[in-house]
């Protein structure tokens, strides 16, 4: 099945621009487990522009998820600074962080994390409702996005009635429906077969082409081929791939 053609309703199509969506400087994160200190990140500095599709790779335990968590405003760094659209992020203000997350960031989890008591349409519409869209408009827009992703016949189904690929597409719809500036994807194809994985990657490429910055953590080399840029991580350090 060919990946469907997505047309995200931006007011104008954005090209990859010089505008930085998120920047982090000398990020460090240390976990303390009993007597042991785990340095998950050591002075990582990266920057993501609008429209970039950036891959994040490295062996297990190198700090990929930690970096995603910090850039996704779900976890504070031990040291370092994060800027979002030029403004420094204050990690002590949980209310502001939540506002930022729901309005500017989309999440694509490895295990989908769909809410089991909401239908596919409702899972997607949730993001619009959280951004003060009216109920009818949110449901209509959610149905539209799901239709664009080829899930028209599944919009009233609960997650447990969907296949893995369908769930990931619903999760993708949820991640983009509110037109975030940044999408964070943690191993989005990790639980999918190659065919469906390619489908999701194709969708992500299209989203990036429309101006959304995407940072994708992955082990898959075929996924990395889709990225305009690859950041490698090892033992908490990051390097750009040539």
């Amino acid at each position: 099945m060919n990946p469907p053609n997505i047309s995200i309703n931006h007011s104008s199509t954005r090209q990859a621009s010089d505008q930085f969506i998120v920047t982090c400087q000398l990020l460090s994160k240390t976990y303390i487990a009993g007597q042991i200190e785990v340095h998950a990140l050591r002075g990582v500095s990266i920057a993501l522009r609008s429209g970039e599709f950036v891959g994040l790779t490295g062996p297990s335990g190198c700090g990929k998820s930690t970096l995603l968590n910090i850039l996704g405003m779900t976890e504070p760094p031990t040291a370092g600074v994060v800027y979002f659209r030029g403004a420094e992020v204050n990690f002590s203000n949980s209310v502001a962080l939540a506002t930022l997350r729901r309005s500017q960031i989309g999440y694509l989890f490895q295990y989908f994390n769909l809410l089991p008591t909401l239908t596919a349409q409702e899972n997607v519409a949730l993001m619009l409702l959280l951004n003060a869209t009216g109920s009818a408009a949110a449901m209509a827009r959610a149905a539209e996005v799901l239709k664009e992703l080829g899930l028209e016949s599944r919009i009233q189904h609960l997650p447990q009635a969907l296949s893995g690929g369908e769930m990931q597409r619903v999760a993708l719809a949820r991640a983009i429906v509110h037109k975030p500036a940044l999408v964070l994807a943690d191993e989005p194809t990790g639980n999918l077969d190659s065919k469906r994985g390619q489908q999701v990657l194709g969708l992500l490429s299209e989203i990036a082409a429309n101006g959304t910055a995407i940072l994708m953590a992955t082990h898959s080399s075929s996924a990395l081929e889709r990225c305009s840029r690859v950041i490698s991580m090892l033992d908490g350090f990051s390097t750009e791939a040539p």
Partner: peptide
């Protein structure tokens, strides 16, 4: 998940 998505 709700907290991650930005639900207060």
């Amino acid at each position: 998940t709700l907290h991650t998505l930005g639900v207060p």
